[in-house]
């Protein structure tokens, strides 16, 4: 079941990074940098448009040709938005939902993944396929039946409804299962011989070894929850419960929209993600995959 190329882990292993090429390092390196710099600029152009639009008047946001530098800088957009909508409440709700859903998804997802990756029992693969199968159904197709269940449970218009809805998705289980498959079985066998229970193996061996995967799962879940619009829209009616994405959409009217405010809000809403992203980054550079056995 496991990949055979991974040898049992040594006690001390060097970081799992691709070593520097020996020949013509400077040429290659320069080329890589050039590529990355060009690409980063290209990639950030829409973001630049967002920032520029956040400093304009609504009527100036869309223009032909695009005006990259606003005729007049409306910095007051960034103060005005706090008066226009209860942004503090929305941000607090978004942070709360994203954190809770991420924590639950990571916890239950990695726990279930151990069952799918490291324990052999009949019916396991069929069950796993059921998980996979549900991802294949578009949410638009089952949102109404789901809503009815929630309504019957009296959970509509609570944060709990969204937490229950999004914390137990198949995504986390799947991601973690795939990662666990790359961890050599020899590690857990050795631990078993040492008398550790399966739960002990999960908590003391596997979990610490899977920090990069946990970090990416946490990051992606956080971002997806943070940016989710349709879920909160359908389930949260009370304005006090709204998230930042709903707040941004409240600038879209029946016939027109206040695009400068939307872009101002979008810029503000990216900042927390940026923080999370920079925090999560350190788990991708440590090369901890094989150095966990101490």
């Amino acid at each position: 079941m496991t990949l055979t190329i991974s040898p049992p882990a040594p006690v001390e292993a060097p970081p799992a990074e691709v070593p520097r090429p020996r020949r013509r390092p400077s040429v290659r390196r320069a080329f890589a940098y050039l590529l990355l710099v060009v690409l980063s600029v290209a990639v950030l152009v829409p973001f630049a448009w967002m920032v520029s639009s956040s400093l304009k008047l609504d009527a100036e946001v869309f223009s032909v040709p695009i005006r990259w530098i606003p005729a007049e800088f409306h910095w007051d957009n960034f103060t005005r938005i706090w008066e226009r909508i209860p942004l503090v409440t929305y941000l607090r709700n978004s942070v709360f939902l994203s954190l809770v859903i991420t924590a639950l998804q990571v916890l239950t997802g990695s726990f279930a993944a151990y069952g799918f990756a490291k324990v052999r029992f009949p019916g396991r693969d069929a069950l796993f396929l059921a998980y996979l199968a549900t991802i294949a159904v578009p949410w638009q197709a089952y949102m109404v039946p789901q809503y009815i269940i929630m309504q019957k449970a009296g959970l509509v218009n609570t944060h709990l409804s969204l937490i229950l809805l999004q914390a137990f998705g198949a995504f986390g289980v799947f991601l973690m299962r795939q990662y666990y498959l790359t961890i050599p079985d020899e590690l857990s066998e050795a631990a078993r011989l040492d008398g550790l229970s399966e739960y002990g193996i999960w908590a003391r061996i596997i979990l610490p070894l899977s920090k990069p995967a946990l970090a990416s799962l946490a990051l992606l879940t956080f971002v997806n929850t943070w940016n989710d619009y349709m879920g909160p829209f359908i389930y949260l009616t009370d304005n006090k419960l709204w998230t930042i994405q709903l707040g941004l959409r409240s600038f879209v009217g029946l016939y027109d929209a206040e695009y400068a405010m939307i872009m101002t809000g979008s810029v503000l809403s990216v900042l927390p993600i940026l923080v999370i992203f920079l925090l999560g980054q350190k788990y991708f550079v440590q090369g901890i995959a094989t150095s966990g056995m101490k």
Partner: peptide
């Protein structure tokens, strides 16, 4: 350290669920 990670996760989740139950509601 390893146990720490698990307990933190579990505690956050439990706490969050408890507080979430209080929120919202319908008059």
């Amino acid at each position: 350290m390893k146990r720490h990670l698990t307990t933190t996760l579990a505690a956050t989740a439990a706490l969050a669920l408890l507080t979430a139950c209080g929120g919202g509601g319908d008059s």
